[in-house]
Amino acid sequence: MDETGKELVLALYDYQEKSPREVTMKKGDILTLLNSTNKDSWKVEVKITVNGKTYERQGFVPAAYVKKL
């Protein structure tokens, strides 16, 4: 869990989004878990840094590609 009590997951593999509802992640990324009720895909939040500014983006990733921490 992070400092706000949200559950975290670790990306086990790289994943490139295939639709606007998904998010891209790299192996080793730590993501905030938002919903894990679907056995196939979990909703997560990723933090992306562009030019020194951090943005948050929500979307789905394959459940088999992440592990709860």
Results as ranks from 00 to 15, higher is better:
35 N>R: 06
64 A>E: 11
2 D>F: 14
49 T>C: 15
45 E>K: 12
24 T>L: 03
29 D>N: 05
43 K>R: 10
39 K>C: 12
63 A>T: 05
11 A>H: 03
5 G>F: 13
52 G>N: 06
42 W>H: 00
48 I>P: 00
12 L>Y: 02
68 K>G: 04
57 R>K: 11
13 Y>E: 09
37 T>P: 03
12 L>C: 12
16 Q>K: 12
7 E>H: 11
13 Y>M: 12
12 L>W: 03
55 Y>A: 05
40 D>K: 12
50 V>P: 00
46 V>K: 12
9 V>Q: 01
15 Y>G: 01
64 A>G: 09
58 Q>C: 08
14 D>L: 06
58 Q>D: 04
10 L>R: 09
25 M>S: 01
26 K>H: 10
18 K>C: 11
55 Y>R: 06
46 V>F: 08
30 I>M: 05
24 T>V: 02
46 V>T: 10
20 P>L: 08
43 K>L: 15
17 E>V: 05
27 K>C: 07
19 S>G: 11
35 N>A: 08
27 K>F: 04
3 E>N: 14
31 L>N: 00
18 K>M: 10
32 T>G: 05
38 N>V: 05
43 K>Y: 15
30 I>S: 01
12 L>Q: 03
20 P>D: 11
7 E>C: 15
36 S>I: 05
13 Y>L: 09
22 E>S: 06
65 Y>M: 14
41 S>A: 11
65 Y>C: 15
56 E>F: 15
69 L>K: 00
31 L>S: 02
7 E>V: 14
33 L>F: 02
57 R>D: 00
27 K>S: 05
30 I>A: 01
12 L>V: 05
62 P>C: 08
6 K>C: 15
58 Q>S: 11
37 T>M: 10
38 N>F: 08
11 A>Y: 04
43 K>F: 15
20 P>R: 08
50 V>Q: 09
31 L>Q: 01
40 D>W: 15
1 M>R: 13
25 M>N: 01
2 D>K: 14
1 M>P: 13
30 I>Q: 02
36 S>N: 07
59 G>M: 06
66 V>L: 15
24 T>P: 07
44 V>E: 00
23 V>H: 02
17 E>P: 15
63 A>C: 07
54 T>H: 07
52 G>T: 03
41 S>W: 15
65 Y>K: 06
30 I>Y: 04
30 I>N: 01
48 I>E: 07
33 L>Q: 00
36 S>M: 09
11 A>K: 03
62 P>N: 05
64 A>C: 15
18 K>L: 08
55 Y>S: 07
65 Y>P: 01
37 T>H: 10
69 L>R: 00
8 L>E: 06
